[in-house]
Design a binder for these strands. Structure first.
Lengths: 399, 399
DNA sequence: ACAGCTTATTTCATTGAGTGAAAAATCTTT
DNA sequence: AAAGATTTTTCACTCAATGAAATAAGCTGT
């Protein structure tokens, strides 16, 4: 059941505050007059709201506009230091922690070992300590910390802050957000890691103001995040974006998930490595994707074939997304992107070839590698997502 | 670029009017007191808004609630005759036209030949005549007609009312809505036919108040419509839902679209018929899906195998949707559903088998045949979609 | 029949956010 | 320093929601 929005003065105020804040965020620096034109609010409303936002330090006055014949415009811009956020990315053996400002600039970064004991209490202690040490090391006033975002591979329930299932950490229905919240006395947001990356692309990256786009991550697995109608898509009960487990060939090999012929079993990094290993002696068999790339750089035909085949199959997988959703942007990301054109060029060719007539015409594809910083910034962007989110979306519009 | 919503009194009023209207629509018949509780509006606001809606005849007073100790509640319900809508479904050789009330009840139905000459002027004349004759034959006051919805296979641009591409009718970028609007002096809405069906499921069918669901149509082609986050998904530039043209097997046969191995080329009705025909003599070769079903009913192993295989492949195709989007409801529809369990049972098995671990647990699947009435009602529901749509969605919320 | 009780619905004074015209502030040019 | 232009603030006004109080309308028991 969905909640309906009820309109009243508070909602108007929230909508228009958010409108001003996001307009400034989008355009960089604007005068009140420009804000009036863009937002279509009255001059009075803009004056009132900007006054409040300046008083609360969300906006800064500074700089003057070009001379246009009379009084100069005073420019307003977002105050990036009005608050900050912590982003945590949880991995099998590591915790990556970043403190960022409102524009996603990393102020402090820390990389810690994940305790071997995956017991909730141990983990929560490690995570809260990571937060506190990072904040104090940064010198930023702790009161400026607006919240903590946590990204983790697996299925999460963002609304309740529960990690439903984490394959690498072995958790089942862990109420992580609540456990951390009571320790930190801060809002804590949990999301699937690919979704955090998707959100940060929407807020700070190539996905800015794009209505429909998808992020595909290539690495140990194949992941996917979507922004549809300007909103992060979260499916029913957090299950979605299992691009790695769509069936590529029903007669294919077993996948780690228990099904046969998943895309991941053909095209993720482990499949590439296995493809090369099986035709090699034990000594010179590659162990990592970097090893395979090194072989390919050295002219090894098998390594090149493995990467090419992976790319082609990935391209077919992504073509399915385009055929079904027709996003206007596809961001190909993840650690596996380092394989470069051995993998990416065939991927793009296959994507073009397997997409329905004309559907790819206006689709932009961006390839960008992801590192630990990017994952941590993604997690932190959960906090900014809430901050800049329209009160309408927050309230959950419905029909 | 997306438009932002600006909040003011008019927006509040529109939100709350819509809220009341949809609350009554959802619950059937409600008193003002119940409306106050459900909508969380104040008693004064409910009194004011219901008074206006009754004066404008959108709501009717009638009936009394159960005795709860004091004055009895006066029940309010939607007035289905407050307005009506025409739905047109365009097919290769026929025009189907239905006049419906606000609850999608068909008041008058007409079935006309599509002119052989697909020239815009000829078509538009035929369509406007279909509208006018249906309305006058119904006896309904023409002033009650709120608009006309048109459903057509192919790619449409609903915002501009343009048919971008219609494979069966051979149109390219025909501004059909505008041509009809100037003749009829009524709002005209154009949509892809599967999307009209999806919308009518959302408003009046199994998709009522479901946040995420998809409609899959099986017939001459394989189509798909989606409601995501309570909104009909329309992709970038109207291109989306090409489920029939996702690649099932890159080495497969040529599809009519020019690609190889599309799902449609394996599993749509023509593929089933061809599968049986190729192994038969000219006399007893089936020409329609009904022929294949008759053979299967008669115990023909080949016909049964053809239907089973089609079902299995469809199941794999639909599993891709579940893996990517995890909707909570899948409505399987279209004329091809008449093949029944020869096709549907293997489809459901394959769907289960190829869906990622646990993702199908809470997914409901409904199978329902579609006839001409359903298509025409779907088209008419475009009008009701606009009528009951939240002003927030209409304005286009964005971040 | 009717007082007494309960609940439903309307009425009405209040609040506050946006609106837009007018005033004030500020900058440049002459 | 005055004139002209533009930006920004101020302020009276409007209108929708709010919520308390008033009114309306039913039922029960005597």
């Amino acid at each position: 059941m969905s909640t309906f929005v009820r309109g009243n003065k508070d909602l108007i105020k929230a909508i228009n505050r958010n409108l001003i804040l996001n307009t400034v965020r989008r355009h960089g620096a604007l005068s009140r007059t420009q804000l009036t034109e863009i937002s279509r609010l009255s001059v009075g409303a803009v004056s009132q709201i900007t006054q409040e936002l300046i008083r609360e330090a969300w906006l800064l006055e500074g700089g003057e506009g070009d001379y246009t014949g009379g009084r100069r415009q005073t420019l307003l811009r977002l105050n990036p230091d009005a608050g900050c956020a912590i982003g945590l990315k949880l991995m099998e053996h590591r915790i990556v922690c970043a403190l960022t400002d409102l524009e996603s600039k990393v102020l402090r970064y820390q990389d810690l070992p994940m305790p071997d004991d995956h017991d909730p209490v141990t983990i929560v202690t490690a995570l809260t300590e990571a937060v506190e040490t990072t904040v104090s090391a940064s010198g930023v006033d702790r009161r400026k910390l607006l919240g903590v975002g946590v990204g983790v591979a697996g299925v999460t329930y963002p609304q309740t802050g529960v990690v439903h299932y984490s394959p690498y950490l072995g958790w089942r229905d862990l109420p992580l957000a609540e456990l951390m919240r009571v320790r930190l006395h801060l809002p804590v947001y949990i999301e699937n890691d690919v979704n955090t990356l998707t959100l940060s692309e929407q807020l700070f990256g190539a996905g800015r103001h794009i209505e429909n786009f998808v992020v595909v991550t290539i690495g140990r697995g194949i992941g996917m995040g979507m922004v549809l109608k300007h909103q992060l898509y979260q499916g029913a009960k957090g299950g979605m974006g299992e691009l790695g487990h769509i069936t590529f060939d029903a007669a294919g090999p077993m996948c780690s998930c228990g099904k046969r012929g998943c895309l991941e079993a053909f095209a993720a990094d482990p499949a590439v490595i296995a493809y090369v290993r099986h035709s090699r002696s034990a000594q010179d068999a590659p162990r990592t994707l970097e090893d395979v790339i090194a072989l390919a750089d050295g002219g090894d035909a098998l390594a090149r074939a493995a990467l090419r085949r992976s790319g082609e199959i990935l391209g077919i997988g992504i073509s399915t997304i385009v055929n079904l959703l027709c996003p206007s942007l596809i961001i190909v990301s993840g650690e596996g992107v380092i394989a470069g054109d051995y993998r990416i060029a065939p991927m793009l060719d296959a994507l073009q070839a397997h997409t329905f007539n004309g559907l790819m015409d206006d689709v932009q594809v961006i390839v960008e590698a992801t590192d630990d910083h990017a994952w941590a910034r993604g997690s932190a962007s959960l906090v900014m997502g809430k901050l800049f989110e329209s009160p309408l979306i927050e309230a959950g519009i419905a029909v």
